[in-house]
Design a protein around this nucleic acid. Structure first.
Lengths: 203, 203
DNA sequence: TGACCACCTGTACCACGGTACAATAGCCAA
DNA sequence: TTGGCTATTGTACCGTGGTACAGGTGGTCA
């Protein structure tokens, strides 16, 4: 039994429609939300140019349908909104049939799908302003041990040695020992430089 | 022809291994990276407790192998590192066989896989970090004087009180006075919080 | 003139941060 | 077994950071 794919967009888009048709030959195209039946629907693909799509997604998602949002211009902000309202996938409206099938397959298995480029962009943004993730120690060919990294993370949060000790259930003496090792490895003199280094630091 | 799955972890983890085995009955477990052959490998799963995993991932990724990083404690920061060095998936080392197969399926189709919860976490972070940087002092309706700002800028560069005094041609005593005023105005306790505040800081 | 603000400075004190001496235990590879 | 590494901890010391007492000068404004 073939799965039912409903595509909701403002009009049959001459640039996107052929690809959709190739991916899902038996697709059903709708111009309006009320043309989508409540039964016998498996996946709903909504183009983000459709007015009110953010209200439409949860309507069907709540009924157990998988909803994918397609965008003419994918961007992280819109992706966030899509997933926030319950979409299971977010991609380009002009995606190739292969990608469309991939999306279908992934969400059918319970996963969430977003394009690799956008995914990496999200990753960058998620870490971007913190830059904690730029591994500071690798700049000098040094690697912090697991524990050293934990201590460093706490310093970067602004905690004092005493607070870190309490947080990690060790003595203040041990905190100092780890910091000493960190400073030597990173060739810095104090915690301020450490914070700066971790916060995409000052030269 | 069955795909070859290599699992690299420090030792056969009694809690994780059974699940791996169920997902991929013919898996091959390795304790060290050099036990993984260059040929006839399809997917490599590396547990992040393995020392030097961040260097290992790109080694195999560059040879066209799909690498998945498994963590005993998945977190966004580590996820970012994993994908940054070329991993195609990141998940929990204790994932069920179903999830493991899902990961395999997704990356086989060219996608990237990360758990839904972590994915949504990343989304939150990606948008959260996009907030316009607020002028640190305006948050409290306070305004630093010209001189206070000059001292603060030097602190944020990582200079000590003595160095700042020399830089601005004042005594250390005066530096302290300004810092005291700054801390009161911004309601912070020390220079670390000041640095963090100025570097789009920690809440 | 008096009040307020900004900038500057001294003495004094104490907590914190960082370093140096020392030691133990566990793990792992050669 | 040995050596290296990591994690942990103690004692000790000293410089730095932060706060509290105090004071002064100059400029602005009502």
């Amino acid at each position: 039994m073939e799965k039912k794919h409903y595509f909701l967009s403002k009009k049959p888009d001459s640039s996107a429609y052929p690809s959709w048709k190739l991916a899902f030959p038996d697709l059903i195209h709708c111009l309006q939300e009320n043309q989508i039946p409540e039964e016998s629907v498996d996946v709903i693909w909504i183009v983000s140019t459709v007015k009110g799509w953010e209200e439409t997604v949860p309507l069907f998602q709540k009924k157990g349908k998988n909803v994918v949002v397609l965008s003419m211009q994918p961007n992280t902000e819109e992706a966030f909104r899509a997933f926030s309202v319950g979409a299971r996938g977010y991609g380009h409206a002009l995606s190739s049939p292969t990608i469309l099938k991939q999306i279908d397959s992934v969400i059918a298995q319970g996963g969430l799908w977003v394009g690799p480029d956008l995914f990496m962009g999200l990753m960058q943004l998620s870490q971007g302003n913190n830059k904690t993730t730029v591994n500071p120690e690798s700049e000098h060919g040094s690697t912090l041990s697991e524990r050293e990294r934990e201590v460093a993370d706490q310093v970067v949060k602004g905690l004092s040695n005493k607070e870190i000790a309490r947080e990690l259930n060790i003595t203040e003496r041990t905190v100092k020992a780890h910091l000493g090792a960190i400073f030597r490895k990173l060739d810095i003199r104090d915690r301020i430089q450490l914070v700066l280094r971790f916060k995409s630091g000052v030269s």
